[in-house]
Write a protein that binds this DNA or RNA. Sequence first.
DNA 1: TAAAAAAAGTGTGTTTTAAACACTTTAAAA
DNA 2: TTTTAAAGTGTTTAAAACACACTTTTTTTA
Lengths: 230, 230
Amino acid sequence: MTLSNYSNEDKVLLAVDCIIFGFDKEELKILLIQRDFEPEKGKWSLIGGFLKKEENLDEAAIRVLHHLTGLNDIYMEQLYTFSKVDRDPADRALSVAYYALIDIKNHDSSLLKRESSKWFNLKDAPNLIFDHNRMVERSLARLQRKALSKPIGFELLPTKFTMRQLQKLYEAILEKKLDKRNFINKFNSLDILIKLDEKDMSSSKKGAYLFQFDEEKYNSKVEDGFSFKL
Amino acid sequence: MTLSNYSNEDKVLLAVDCIIFGFDKEELKILLIQRDFEPEKGKWSLIGGFLKKEENLDEAAIRVLHHLTGLNDIYMEQLYTFSKVDRDPADRALSVAYYALIDIKNHDSSLLKRESSKWFNLKDAPNLIFDHNRMVERSLARLQRKALSKPIGFELLPTKFTMRQLQKLYEAILEKKLDKRNFINKFNSLDILIKLDEKDMSSSKKGAYLFQFDEEKYNSKVEDGFSFKL
DNA sequence: TAAAAAAAGTGTGTTTTAAACACTTTAAAA
DNA sequence: TTTTAAAGTGTTTAAAACACACTTTTTTTA
């Protein structure tokens, strides 16, 4: 057996582009960079890079994400592979889009300046190069679906959070208002949060109890057939 | 601006592999071929091909599907891109998996022999080459989810079908028994089927009414905010 | 020609889940 | 001491999901 079977086939460049979501001030945000190279220099874009021969796609995405945020354990999921023939005017290149969720307070923000990157409210993000707008659209749709069926929302929050923060997060993701009591009742019935003895005093005089996601409990419940449904 | 920006980046082979589902005799089936070339000659595999420079991924999948089935309008959806570094022992090649749903009675079955391909019950399909088993697993999971939230099941049935066939189809997809009355009540409440004056006599003495998916009605209901939920 | 067999067809009651809804508590600031 | 701003807390109603069994039709067979 030789490698010659495939020798007549075309090879292509494969980009990995990341939609990085964050959450702050009751708003869903995405992290964008201003390109400092051609084509489309100066325009806003998702962060990305090209797949190297010796790595798989997840590794490429982790590399790209780490480079921009300094973070190592980022929630991240492959979204879709975009392949329009002329999507990149410079050369035939496909792009595998990943979306990532990070706690916006937790990354090394000094890295952002070096890359001239910036957090935007999702709602008023600028136009992006190539097909990156479509990638963002699609990632939001995925996030909306997934947030209802898996406990991934916590990735966007600090370890300790108030119920109000949690509710505002889901409102931002789902782009609709939720009823406070129904939301809390629902989450309580899931029984996967730990109520701490600590209060967050930053947003009110009275103070609000802090909660934590009980990942161990969640995992063991899942093993017993439980499934997160909001 | 030149093309030289990307000139140091690695290029890779990109395969497109298709999981083709069918439905017959109350069983969910997949179409496999026996490879007639190295590597892994003689082993069972998904059908696939390599992406060409001048086509996008959907076009490549359509090409591959048409070649094997003779069909042109196949329901088809991109699933996931598999990228383990050594997934193909012959060369660094990634694979974009697509899954497709076809009416098993409707393809040109003379093409199958030429490619030494064969329908298998999903349950007792043979081991496949490379990472194709994982592709099949993932496609089934996607099909199960999607069949509950989009009316794609009809793609696996002839235009006219009985309620029993429809129920057996969903039972095969979801891998669980459903209650006949609840199933019919549910579908009736969706109000997207046309009951024909015709009966199918093939499976009983009494005969069973044939139904048709009313795609126009479905589309117009969707525009009014309806969404298919089984 | 009556009985058996095999699939088609059809509704209701119960339980669970979703949704609507408003007042009280707390603590700081005025 | 009154005002203010957010936190916290249950109940009622409506809708959806689920469990559940007999009758009809027609062919086959005894």
